[in-house]
Design a protein around this nucleic acid. Sequence first.
DNA 1: TAGATTGTTAATCGATTAACAATC
DNA 2: TAGATTGTTAATCGATTAACAATC
Lengths: 205, 205
Amino acid sequence: MNAEKIPDIIITRLPVYLRALQHMADHGVKNTSSQELGEHVGISAAQIRKDISQFGEFGKQGTGYSIPYLLDKLREILKVDRLWDVIIVGAGDMGHALARYQGFTDRGFRVVMIFDNDPAKIGQQIGDLVVEDTANLAEKVQSSDIKIAMLTIPATVAQETTDKLVKAGIKAVLNYAPISLNVPNDVKVQYIDPATHLQKMTYYL
Amino acid sequence: MNAEKIPDIIITRLPVYLRALQHMADHGVKNTSSQELGEHVGISAAQIRKDISQFGEFGKQGTGYSIPYLLDKLREILKVDRLWDVIIVGAGDMGHALARYQGFTDRGFRVVMIFDNDPAKIGQQIGDLVVEDTANLAEKVQSSDIKIAMLTIPATVAQETTDKLVKAGIKAVLNYAPISLNVPNDVKVQYIDPATHLQKMTYYL
DNA sequence: TAGATTGTTAATCGATTAACAATC
DNA sequence: TAGATTGTTAATCGATTAACAATC
């Protein structure tokens, strides 16, 4: 593992490689090359080799990469060789969908709590979870040492809720609210806003 | 409007500017500067000026940008000065959530159909829509000249469904399935995969 | 061995930033 | 007028690609 700073754009691509490799592994494929992986994810072979080589020499000349080995390494690098507890804030349609989503567990995440401030929703059962009162958010997050939150609340309350989460120790926010969030440097935010994504594509239509 | 090719990375930022400006406008703000807008979205003032100036001279020295005017221009550039019909393929939890999402209309999109191949779901009412049979997908898309689809189906069938959509004339796919899609050059894909987004952030934890 | 493919270097390409004349 | 802020140029910084020696 390299001690120098790895460019953020490389970190963005690693989960994509990981996903493609998991897919290949699921289909019983044992080895791959930068060429083949590149075709899968739409990235040049040279770039894939360069990206991966930032972290070590995981391939072999002549034969490429062992998929199980590279999977292990990527999971270790991305720290998803463990199971992270995450919370959902906002028990609307999107919060529901995420709470019931089956795709988290085998990729390193487990939804452990869901919150809402609507009395009609508090106490409601969603999958294995029971909707809790947002009033208890800070306390629960702090006492269970949770670092990751998914935000599925209206944009109007997204910033103030984020401030509370940050104070409670959250370091990573996956924000579904259509608004840019202000956070300290040591807190990461990723944005998922379908309209924003669609608006990028209409430019080309 | 400039005839030269605009870098894709600039197009990616425009919807973010648009969203922030709409937010300001909703709060009654009439003017802004590259400085102020930059603080809102976490991008340098120089970059914002450079991005916007690719498309024309929309600002005024000394006073900055008129928000209503810049909104108009950005909507025009991104082609969301109109209402695009979009379809949802997959009526699971995520498809449900998107079908009922209120945030599309005032940002240029209208969900007009939702499809599923599960007989138990076909005919079901979701908001104003009735779930239709995926078997009729190609025909319906073609006859109504729809260009945009959101994919909320399992990864296992995402590629074959995409192939059908592309054949039917779809040019933009917002893919919620956790898999990379292969499409012709003139078709755009955007990816929304919560696990991938989370995995990027765990690297920094 | 011959063929394939890595890891890495150097060259190229593209994006961001700093700075400032122009001007509202 | 004085202050503010744009649009743009040039400089810097960073990312991608091409090429190839090393080696499995």
